[in-house]
Design a protein around this nucleic acid. Structure first.
Lengths: 191, 191
DNA sequence: TACGGGTATGTCAGTGACTGACATAAAGCT
DNA sequence: AGCTTTATGTCAGTCACTGACATACCCGTA
């Protein structure tokens, strides 16, 4: 029954096992109290193998970030031409939010872990900065100039960030996409 | 001639020597190619002493961040009551910019070093996030609610960030405060 | 079925960031 | 001159991460 996705050499899905082991251990003992060796051991691999799959110990918590980024970028490029840069960027954020909408519980657990550790917050901020860059690039492709592209990208990601914080702290009813719409409205009201 | 600022035990200003040694070495060989021991050696202290003054190797490049943060916070609290949250926050950014206006050359050298190293960018983003938090807190003290305070804080720091990037890449004539005003105007035009 | 190449893994030794514990010298106070 | 406080030096240790090399699994091909 082995498929082409069994990158592992012994048992299948070594990467998935490491991802799950890391989430478990970080939730149980905390990030700093978990060594890379601990994660590898629970996943049934070697520490060296862990570092072959993840550039560093933190990266195991940011596995989906590349997909998120590409989803946003694609949505921005696919948005109607008549949308303003800010609206196009917000469309990208809404598309990205769609990826998380299904996994609210996982997002909550994960954000708790990140909130407890400054070095994880740093990494999260770097990923958000990458999202800003990708967004700005997409807006420029659509014809936006500077500093409009950069400012719209920053603003849209800010909306994403603030909406995400409300979404994970609320009891879920609102829905991520709705949070984004509300937050975007609040931003417009500011100015 | 020793003053109360000679925190050092042997020669005066051990901290200042480490700050300068770090900037020199990072500029010469790069951040990663410089060990904490290298910095300590050039400063005439021990590696252990370096880590007593700076929480980690990166922190030596962010010595003034606390002052910057407090300056912004104070300016926001001191701003006229009739200013909108966004305008008050921008007043804080202008005050913070005033601290850097005098040291354009140093800011340029430093930002080159940071631009060359992802882990330094992470730290810079964390400091900016602290600035956002402090700004939002000051705005709430002034009576702003949520999510207005958070959004205005994020927007103001975005303006600071974009204006800073233009200020260090330009040949200096504009002046940091002027950059901030222009960037703020561009942001308002977006929405 | 045997072989050969590509790829994921295991093993091991090493570097460098950072920390805790303890000793010591300098500065300040009385 | 003592006494206290503070900044430093010394040393041993943990852990994140890396390069080099050996090894086992997978797959296509003869």
């Amino acid at each position: 029954m082995a498929t082409i996705l069994d990158m592992g050499r012994w048992k299948p899905d070594a990467r998935g096992r490491m991802l799950r082991a890391a989430m478990e251990l970080f939730a149980e003992r905390g990030f700093e109290q978990t060594t890379a060796g601990d994660i590898a051991e629970r996943a049934g691999v070697t520490e060296r193998t862990f570092f072959r799959h993840f550039a560093d110990k933190r990266e195991v918590l940011f596995d989906g970030s590349g997909t998120l980024l590409r989803t946003a970028q694609d949505a921005i490029l696919a948005a109607p031409d008549n949308l303003s840069p800010l609206d196009a960027a917000l469309a990208g954020m809404a598309a990205a939010a769609g990826l998380l909408a299904d996994i609210h519980d996982h997002a909550v657990r994960r954000s708790r872990i990140v909130a407890d550790n400054p070095s994880l917050q740093e990494r999260e901020l770097l990923k958000l900065a990458s999202l800003v860059d990708a967004t700005a690039e997409a807006l420029r492709t659509r014809g936006a100039g500077e500093p409009a592209a950069s400012l719209a990208a920053h603003s849209a990601v800010t909306v994403f960030q603030v909406a995400f914080a409300r979404w994970v702290s609320a009891a879920e009813p609102p829905g991520f996409t709705a949070c984004i719409a509300e937050t975007a409205a609040a931003l417009r009201a500011l100015i």
